[in-house]
Design a protein around this nucleic acid. Structure first.
Lengths: 269, 269
DNA sequence: GCCGGGCAAATGTGATCACAAATGGCGGCA
DNA sequence: TGCCGCCATTTGTGATCACATTTGCCCGGC
């Protein structure tokens, strides 16, 4: 697929290079469109390409940034600029401003007192809290979802988990992050929750960039998840087992790795 | 104090009337400023009155809307318009747009598919979920906070609770809502949490408008809180008692009233 | 009297401009 | 050679404009 944006260092300079990052941010878009002058004043018709409904562009921008955060394409501590993001996405800074504002409200981005925006850094205390919040929320919503998870759902989860194993074998960190998110939220979404699910999403948006840096440092081969136990619990319709599997998955996946890194003298990363 | 804005029905029409709502939204502001033409093009210096730092106006707007939501000055189902809010607050629609966007990201406001914005309606399912989320999060953060709550804090809480009793006696619903929020968050804020506290804030932003309508319908004299038990638990440094008091306060305060109203045939309000 | 079409007003959205603050680099001075 | 102050650039923010869509209302026809 075509060249695209390196989100890890993106938006700090308007680098015109097309580097090795393989994943397009905005589906079906031509990223290296170096003629922004073809949008003279009010020509948002070019941007509203797929003829969808209202507010498509802003939501596309927000979805792109959310996915970039969840897959770890934003590095904690890196600056994020409205104009840079807008240039990368081929839109004016306006929809980016709103999307960033929405993410910042969820503490997924950090609007610093000097006005600049950056990907939040992780601290030991914040990591502890995120861990506790996950343990509080996710076993709860998983048990809520159990009633709606049937055999086809379990098959879907098995399929995702196989892909996770594959991405772990090949060392595809970004793919692992996306698939791990897909696995958990395939379960959680089944709960049909309008309240708890967004809370869980917020927590994920906050810890995902940090987890990516952890995986980049220690590698993905250390990942030991409880996905197969969770699938088995779903197949047996075993509430306690599912709750236990989710909680252990969170503890094993985040707890040891996170603390080992945050305990290092280089501290917040 | 001066005339101000009726947030309950605000922004649906640019009503120039100064009605009976007693609370100013933006402290130290002249609400009925009918000459917006004194801000010709880029004169944001007049708005940046108190000479504070960057992004003051947008944060003031968001804080105003948040407080209005928490005290129930927004009625569920009512429309909210950018231009209306902007006119009420004396600013251009731009900072309102961002503030509303941030609140909408937290599901505190509802951006409907047709583009319009309104205060979210309550449903039985959503109420159940909000109740569960509160019971999940608030006892947790309260016990986290217990270590930081000393005798002066307990005295502060007693003072707030006395004011709550007073507002219940006089039937001041808005004052009760504000004081009840102050009571709970005086406890929760002590936990020093950067993650769970915003989650709790989000949940409160979602259920507060509905609770206001409940109180407006059934009156505040039915309120039976567990504040005194919570204060006693803090004074005895009794974790289990504090956790139990908070959970019962949530259940008693929301559960019965909410379900009785939502169970009524008029349904979602 | 009721319903439907059509027009005016309202509303959110994206783009662009102007501006203040902050950043970063460059040169001069000790 | 090292440090400090100044200036160009960057960056977020608010305002305003243009526009698509939707809403609401009025009027004419049945």
């Amino acid at each position: 697929m075509g060249p695209t944006v390196n989100w890890a260092k993106c938006s700090v300079t308007k680098t015109p290079h097309a580097n090795a990052t393989p994943t397009p941010i905005l589906a079906g878009r031509e990223p290296e469109h170096d003629t922004p002058d073809d949008r003279p004043h009010g020509d948002q018709a070019t941007a509203r390409s797929s003829g969808s409904q209202r507010a498509a562009m802003r939501d596309r921008v927000e979805a792109s940034v959310r996915e970039a955060l969840l897959t770890g394409r934003f590095i904690p501590g890196n600056p994020v600029t409205l104009r840079g993001l807008a240039a990368d996405l081929g839109v004016s800074p306006m929809p980016v401003r709103e999307a960033v504002r929405a993410l910042a409200a969820a503490h997924a981005l950090d609007m610093r007192p000097n006005g600049r925006i950056r990907v939040p850094r992780m601290t030991a205390q914040r990591f502890d809290e995120l861990l506790h919040a996950r343990i509080l929320l996710e076993p709860h919503i998983a048990t809520m979802a159990l009633d709606f998870l049937d055999k086809p759902a379990a098959a879907e989860l098995t399929q995702i988990d196989d892909a996770i194993d594959e991405s772990l074998r090949t060392g595809d960190v970004e793919g692992y992050m996306r698939l791990n998110h897909a696995f958990h939220f395939r379960i959680y979404r089944a709960a049909g929750s309008e309240v708890v699910l967004p809370l869980v999403e917020n927590v994920w948006l906050q810890f995902a960039p940090f987890m990516r840096t952890v995986y980049g440092r220690v590698g993905t081969f250390v990942v030991e998840d409880m996905h197969k136990e969770a699938i088995a619990a779903i197949q047996r319709n075993d509430r306690a087992a599912l709750r236990h599997a989710i909680e252990c998955d969170i503890r094993d996946g985040m707890g040891i790795i996170g603390h080992s890194v945050l305990g290092a003298p280089d501290g917040a990363a």
